[in-house]
Design a protein around this nucleic acid. Structure first.
Length: 468
RNA sequence: GUGGUUGUAGCUCAGUUGGUUAGAGCACCAGAUUGUGAUUCUGGGGGUCGUGGGUUCGAGACCCAUCUUCCACCCCA
């Protein structure tokens, strides 16, 4: 026997029964919503060919990919020269597979591999864990779940509008009442860059602006200057930070500022179209008021979401009454499958951060009691004879759809009762010699402590009524 | 990847400038109560002080390494 204390790898977690039940509740709401909007599930393997993943997330991303050591004698194909050339060269020789880093690249790979079977537009959702060799922090793990929904093969902005609808529906169903869906457009950002005289520099501008919440206008100014943006340009940029008014008013202000730029025009046209779709859908996101007064759907020109592959609309969701980063985000990308040699497929997608949503629901105490499944009734037994008597009743309860268990041995009553107590089983059924003689069983309500003597059919009826 | 931080019972934490046998609350187990949990009373079990080295007559405390936790960057969900 080893004395070694068991442990799990850094940045990973066990989920106990109570946590899994709550997580499944969140997954359930998300799945039902995705399916209601015509998205179908997809699953891909935990591991991909390393070559499929490398180069897709930038140099930094490549370092964060968990590589899988080749099985067998993984050194057999390497030479001393390989080792001398360093870890990059060596990695290719000793590792051919890697753990999935996100769900988007495997999705693109799937689309390309199955292009002839798929009918476009192709709408899929995917809820699976991904792995990153990142340094963990609160809300950041090395293994975590992503819930992606993407549609590829159409340019229609209806998809963008429906993303807003799905986000609104999922979060509302989960009981959140104060959240803001921020929306922006890469065209707007490009237009801004052009309008302030820094055409083509929107990448640098985005990275800096994205930090506005965190480091403030002064910090952003410094970061922009470090990145080589002219001071005059920054002066022109800053008024955009706090554009006032409704979304329509902001759009009008942007029209005068960016109307002359081609990219800005494209962004404004797209955004107006999204709003028109939402309007005609009768979107709750347009009509619902947040208690904090912040708009439910907010055009925010400072939303940048890194640089990555987004080319059109971009989204991000912030919960206003909880201390948490964005819990959902996404956007449109023009050329997702281009990396696998299939150009010209436009797509738009977004993702929920389940771990963060969990923390928010916990913080705001929004998990409903009904999300906690569990045994409804425990049959307590006194001896072998009572056990035999109880077995058909147990089956009858289960046939009636009532989650029930029989304590598997004739332990002390105290032990059996406290088992029910700790497992939060709301009812206990006591079967002893008196009960067997009369056929009337004692049903104890563990919350009130009240006990009734009832026939089994009445008990089933009562428990079923209770379940509603 | 850079800089910092944390680790003592199942959990939350005390533990004096290094000095007997490392404590508390909660939790757990048993009894008070052989047909009744959660409340009450009484008793009990449980710690190689994250791990490995080092300094010292003596280390939970000091030094080094390593793992882990959390935080700020980087980046991201």
């Amino acid at each position: 026997m080893s004395k070694e204390k068991p442990s799990i790898p850094k940045g990973t977690r066990d989920f106990g029964p109570a946590v899994v039940v709550k997580r499944n509740y969140i997954f359930g709401v998300i799945k039902r919503t995705f399916e209601k909007f015509g998205y179908l599930p997809l699953e891909t393997p935990a591991m991909e060919q390393l070559s499929v993943l490398t180069g897709k997330y930038g140099d930094e991303g490549d370092q964060l990919i968990f590589k899988i050591l080749n099985s067998g004698d993984f050194l057999s194909k390497t030479t001393a020269a390989d080792i001398e050339q360093g870890s990059k060269q060596l990695t290719r020789k000793i590792s051919e597979k890697a753990l999935r880093y996100d769900l988007t690249v495997p999705f693109a790979r799937f689309v390309v591999m199955n292009r002839n079977e798929i009918s476009f537009p192709f709408k899929r959702y995917q809820i699976q864990p991904v792995w990153r060799a990142d340094r963990p922090q609160r809300g950041r793990y090395r293994e975590f779940y992503q819930c992606d929904a993407d549609v590829v093969g159409t340019n229609s902005l209806l998809c963008e509008a429906e993303i807003v609808q799905m986000i609104d529906e999922v979060l509302s169903t989960l009981g959140m009442t104060d959240f803001t869906i921020k929306i922006n457009h890469r065209g707007i950002l490009a237009g801004i860059a052009e309008a302030i005289g820094e055409k083509g520099r929107e990448g640098d501008i985005c990275v800096a602006i994205d930090k506005l919440d965190k480091i403030g206008a002064e910090g952003v100014r410094k970061e922009l200057q470090d990145r080589g943006i002219a001071e005059g340009a920054v002066d022109k940029l800053e008024p955009l930070y706090d554009l006032k008014g409704s979304n329509a008013e902001i759009l009008d202000q942007l029209q005068t500022l960016l109307g002359s730029t081609e990219e800005g025009q494209r962004g404004l046209k797209d955004l107006r179209e999204v709003w028109e779709y939402l309007d005609n859908l009768g979107s709750y996101a347009l009509s619902t008021q947040n208690p904090s007064g912040k708009l439910r759907l907010q055009l925010d020109v400072t939303l940048a979401r890194g640089l990555s592959y987004y080319t059109g609309c971009i989204f991000e969701v912030k919960v206003n009454n909880a201390n948490m980063g964005s819990i959902s985000g996404g956007g449109r990308y023009d050329n997702l499958t281009g990396m696998f040699g299939m150009p010209g497929v436009s797509g738009v997608g977004f993702s929920f951060g389940v771990d963060r949503i969990y923390d928010v629901l916990e913080e705001l105490q929004l998990f409903p009691a009904s999300s906690e499944v569990g045994t409804k009734v425990l049959i307590v037994q006194f001896d072998k004879e009572a056990e035999r008597y109880a077995l058909p009743l147990l089956q009858k309860l289960r046939d009636a759809g009532i989650a029930s268990e029989l304590y598997p041995e004739a332990a002390k009553l105290k032990k059996q009762m406290s088992y029910a107590d700790q497992k939060k089983i709301p009812f206990v059924l006591l079967i002893g010699s008196e009960e067997m003689a009369s056929g009337k069983l004692k049903l104890r309500d563990m919350q009130t402590g009240e006990q009734d003597e009832l026939y089994i059919d009445d008990i089933i009826a009562q428990l079923k009524a209770e379940a509603k």
